[in-house]
Simulated scan of single mutants.
Amino acid sequence: MVFKPNEDIDQAATQVYGYLNGKIKAPFPLSDNNACHNMQCPIKAGDSITYKNALFVEPLYPTIPVIVQWELHTGSDTVTCFTVPVIIVS
């Protein structure tokens, strides 16, 4: 994802959620939620930055459609977020 933050970023955290049946918001556990491991920090406000990350989907997860919500946070502020529909298959 490429984005331009509205404020300087020294550190940020990644949070990922899945919406099951379009209603139930469930957090997705991450082994590393430090967003600066997936983009170059520090970042100046207005700079164009590329954030790259990938999730390993455990083979034991059921086959199910999920709406994934991906968020980057600085403290309690959301820097950017997006949602994407996925289908988990085994």
Rank of each mutant, 00 (worst) to 15 (best):
M1T: 13
M1S: 12
V2D: 14
V2I: 14
V2G: 09
F3Y: 11
F3H: 02
F3D: 06
F3M: 04
K4R: 11
K4P: 04
P5R: 00
P5K: 02
N6C: 04
D8V: 07
D8Y: 07
I9T: 04
D10W: 09
Q11L: 08
Q11G: 15
A12I: 09
A13T: 14
A13S: 13
A13P: 00
Q15G: 04
Q15S: 12
Y17F: 15
Y17V: 03
G18P: 00
Y19H: 09
L20R: 04
L20Q: 10
N21T: 03
N21V: 10
N21K: 10
G22A: 02
G22T: 03
K25I: 02
A26C: 06
P27K: 00
P27A: 09
F28M: 12
F28P: 01
F28S: 00
F28A: 11
P29Q: 08
P29F: 05
L30E: 09
S31K: 14
D32P: 09
N33Q: 06
N33L: 02
N34K: 06
N34R: 09
C36M: 10
C36S: 07
H37Q: 12
H37I: 03
M39C: 07
M39Y: 05
Q40D: 15
Q40F: 11
Q40Y: 07
C41N: 03
C41Q: 03
C41I: 08
P42H: 06
K44V: 12
G46I: 08
G46V: 10
G46W: 03
G46N: 05
G46C: 06
D47F: 04
D47P: 06
D47H: 03
D47M: 01
S48F: 04
S48P: 11
I49Y: 05
I49K: 14
I49N: 12
I49P: 11
Y51T: 04
Y51C: 06
K52F: 10
N53V: 12
N53T: 15
F56D: 13
V57G: 07
V57A: 13
P59G: 05
L60G: 09
L60V: 15
L60I: 14
L60H: 12
L60P: 02
Y61A: 13
Y61I: 11
T63P: 12
I64W: 01
P65N: 05
P65T: 00
V66K: 00
I67P: 00
V68Q: 04
Q69V: 08
E71K: 08
E71L: 10
E71W: 01
L72A: 05
L72M: 12
T74V: 14
T74H: 06
T74P: 02
T74G: 09
G75N: 03
G75Y: 07
D77S: 14
T78W: 05
T80A: 13
T80C: 08
T80F: 09
T80P: 01
C81I: 03
T83W: 01
V84M: 01
V84W: 00
V84Q: 11
V84P: 00
P85C: 02
V86R: 05
I88T: 08
V89P: 03
S90F: 08
